[in-house]
Write a protein that binds this DNA or RNA. Structure first.
Length: 495
RNA sequence: GGUCCCAUCGUCUAGGGGUUAGGACACCGCCCUUUCACGGCGGCGGCAGGGGUUCAAAUCCCCUUGGGACUACCA
């Protein structure tokens, strides 16, 4: 495929949505695969819905995912500006051109009249759409209203008859009757363009060859083809991606279905590698049955032809699996780095983190790496390592299913005694010592190990006991064993 | 209501005239094992329905049904 120019054109009305992230990913992949350009364009033409931090969140999220843009905010480019709000003169020029060539007209209808019109249409069960009240206004009247400073919009003069044939790379040709289209607004009364005008003009001016966007735009395709024809321009290739449905399959994915923003996934402890891999396979499938992809591998394997057209249920199960896979791929050092902010947020490590504490964190990584699914699981997983003391475990937890208070207290006391004497407090010695103790007490190893585990961690699910004890260090182990014995003695006295 | 899109296990999907309908996640079981996890092995589970076309249909066509999108001076 020849080098391609693609754009991701989000509207800064909120954070970067997970659906938008997939669109950006496919854009980026296509650009990288063909040696073309990936352009970021901000479609800030709706002043009323503008969100202050949105652009920052979009840029941060894109970078976090590893999707760098060749032209756009912060990096510039020859086809700018890349904020539509800075291109108003351009849209005004083309809108005016449309009017002058008889392809569009001024409309002075008030929002009130439009609302009333819609109401009547609804009541009558008629198809909705502008009733073309201003379409044939005499030129003198238009001049008069304009001169009087009346508010106006510019509407496209959709042909009354005939049809427009549109083309989508995935679905092929689609036919739309002009009768089902109305005279849509291209320039709003505040001087800003609508999406239809702005995107068509910009895509043409910026030399966009492939438009990748959500399926919800298919219905608007005929308008866009009409605009291209009106300007005498060749339309780019259109690729409409299947929309994301809510996990239950009922309706479009939205905020009420949990996290939908890329930054939320980041905050929850998902790795960008995992999110990208997950998104990659949501609507696209390689020719092989490979499932794990680096960004580079994805670039090599990606092809537009293998994008799917059926709607996708956005279910998170597989994302968790991907996250585990990628967590296990990281080096101990790198994992520690990624996990650090979560520990700092939970107050388990200071910010900044002193080197020796970080080194200890790295030392802990092999113990927990295959046990956490989310980076945010880390506090639960290493809390008892990072704290000097732990809360005394509940007696029931120490006893397990069939232990008695007296027996367990004895076990733990014995354990403390032998552990105090271990010469070198390492994994191997610890295992030898404790297995020997179990044998001496004539109990199964597990009967000894579980109470010890609970005594020193407060949890029943932990990394291997001996590596854990070694990482904890003799002092804390003994202290916690004694604390547990005290808990049991107190429980024994009470009953 | 109108216009348009879509339809293979619960989910993501492969398969596009002849397959025991394949894989992954999830779930269940077994193995490994001091717990948890990882890993290994196995299992459960699907072509929405009806008509055609054809020697042969998950696959092509039509209808029905179901789901979804759009229906703004939002994108």
């Amino acid at each position: 495929m020849d080098a391609v120019r693609v754009r991701f054109a989000p509207s800064p009305t909120g954070y970067l949505h997970i659906g938008g992230a997939r669109t950006a990913l496919y854009d980026w992949l296509l650009a990288r695969k063909t040696g073309g350009q990936f352009i970021l364009r901000i479609e800030d033409t709706d002043r009323s819905r503008l969100v202050a931090d949105a652009v920052q969140d979009i840029k941060d999220s894109l970078r976090w995912l590893g999707l760098d843009w060749d032209e756009g905010p912060d990096v510039g480019g020859d086809a700018g500006p890349y904020f539509q709000s800075e291109r108003l003169a351009v849209y005004h020029q083309y809108a005016t051109q449309l009017v002058q060539t008889g392809k569009a007209y001024y409309c002075f209808c008030t929002p009130e009249r439009l609302a009333e019109m819609r109401k009547k249409q609804e009541q009558a069960g008629e198809p909705s759409g502008y009733d073309r009240f201003c379409r044939e206004l005499p030129a003198e009247e238009v001049e008069k209203k304009l001169a009087a400073g009346e508010q106006y919009v510019i509407r496209f003069k959709t042909p009354l008859t005939g049809q427009t044939k549109v083309h989508d790379e995935l679905r092929g040709e689609m036919l739309f009757d002009h009768q089902t289209l109305d005279d849509f607004v291209v320039l709003k009364s505040d001087g800003f363009p609508t999406y239809h005008l702005a995107s068509v003009v910009d895509d043409h001016l910026m030399g966009i060859t492939h438009v990748i966007r959500g399926e919800e735009w298919i219905v608007s395709l005929p308008r866009h083809f009409l605009l291209y024809a009106a300007f005498g321009w060749e339309p780019p290739a259109f690729i409409h991606l299947p929309i994301f449905l809510a996990p239950d399959g009922k309706g479009k994915l939205s905020k009420r279905h949990g996290a939908t923003g890329v930054s939320e996934f980041k905050a929850k402890g998902y790795l960008p590698e995992a999110l990208v891999n997950f998104l990659l396979l949501l609507g696209w499938h390689p020719a092989t049955d490979q499932e794990i992809f680096t960004l580079d591998e994805a670039v090599a394997a990606f092809s537009v032809e293998r994008i799917n057209t059926s709607p996708v249920n956005f279910s998170l199960d597989k994302l968790d699996w991907f996250n585990g896979i990628y967590i296990r791929k990281l080096s101990h050092e790198e994992l520690a780095k990624r996990v650090l902010p979560f520990l700092q947020k939970d107050g388990l490590l200071p910010d900044p983190c002193p080197p020796e504490r970080f080194a200890y964190l790295v030392r802990l990584m092999p113990l927990v790496q295959e046990r956490i699914k989310l980076l945010s699981d880390i506090s639960q997983a290493v809390g008892y390592f990072l704290r000097e003391e732990i809360d005394p475990p509940a007696p029931e937890l120490l006893l397990g299913k069939k232990g008695t208070v007296a027996e367990t207290a004895l076990l733990l006391t014995e354990a403390a005694t032998v552990l105090e004497k271990v010469t070198d407090f390492n994994e191997e010695n610890l295992e030898q010592t404790l297995r020997a103790l179990a044998e001496k007490l004539q109990i199964k190893p597990g009967q000894l190990f579980m109470p010890v585990r609970v005594a020193v961690t407060g949890q029943t699910a932990t990394p291997g006991l001996f590596e854990l004890l070694a990482a904890l260090g003799r002092e804390r182990v003994l202290k916690r064993l004694k604390q547990a014995v005290a808990v049991l003695e107190r429980a024994g006295a009470e009953s």
